[in-house]
Computed example of a mutant assay.
Amino acid sequence: MSAEIRPARSAALTYAGLVLTPLFWAGNAVVARGTVDSIPPLSMAFWRWVIALAILLPFAMPGILRNLRVIREHLGSMVVLATFSVGAFNSLLYVAAVTTTATNIALINATIPIFVSLLAWIILGDRTRPIQALGIALAILGILAVVARGDISVLTGLQAQPGDLIMVAAVFSWGLFSVLLRRQAVPLPGFTFLSTQILLGTLVILPFYLADLLFFSGGFELTRETAMPLAYFAIFPGILAYACWNYAVHSIGPSRAAIFIYLTPVFAAILASIFLGESLGQFHIIGGMLILVGLVLATRAGRPIPEYRKLS
Rank of each mutant, 00 (worst) to 15 (best):
P162C: 12
P162H: 11
G163A: 00
D164W: 09
D164I: 00
L165V: 15
L165D: 08
L165C: 06
I166Y: 11
M167N: 12
V168H: 12
A169T: 14
A170W: 13
A170F: 10
V171H: 07
F172H: 01
F172W: 09
S173Y: 04
S173C: 13
G175R: 09
G175A: 08
L176F: 12
L176V: 13
F177E: 12
F177W: 07
S178P: 02
V179D: 12
L180V: 06
R182S: 15
R183E: 15
R183T: 04
V186L: 11
P187H: 01
P189F: 08
G190Y: 01
G190N: 14
S195D: 08
T196S: 13
Q197W: 01
I198S: 01
I198E: 01
L199E: 00
L200T: 01
L200D: 00
G201Y: 13
L203Y: 02
V204S: 06
V204M: 07
L206W: 01
P207N: 04
F208M: 11
Y209A: 11
Y209N: 07
A211I: 14
D212F: 13
L213A: 14
F215K: 03
F215N: 08
F215W: 12
F216R: 14
S217R: 08
S217Y: 14
G218S: 07
G218P: 10
G219P: 05
F220A: 04
F220R: 02
L222W: 14
L222D: 08
T223H: 04
T223M: 07
T226E: 13
A227P: 05
M228A: 15
M228N: 04
M228E: 09
M228G: 01
M228H: 01
M228P: 01
P229Q: 12
L230H: 09
A231D: 00
A231I: 15
F233D: 04
F233M: 13
A234V: 08
A234P: 02
A234G: 10
I235P: 06
I235G: 09
I235A: 11
F236H: 11
F236V: 08
P237L: 05
G238I: 00
G238D: 01
G238P: 10
Y242H: 13
C244D: 03
N246R: 06
N246C: 08
Y247F: 13
Y247V: 05
V249D: 07
H250V: 03
S251A: 15
I252E: 07
G253L: 05
P254V: 08
R256I: 02
R256Q: 12
A258L: 14
A258Y: 07
A258Q: 14
A258F: 13
A258K: 02
I259M: 11
I259W: 14
I259G: 05
I259N: 04
F260D: 04
F260R: 04
I261G: 02
Y262R: 00
Y262Q: 15
L263E: 05
L263R: 12
L263D: 11
P265A: 07
P265E: 03
V266M: 13
V266S: 03
F267C: 01
F267D: 12
A268E: 05
A268K: 10
I270S: 11
I270Y: 02
A272D: 07
A272L: 10
A272I: 13
I274R: 13
I274D: 04
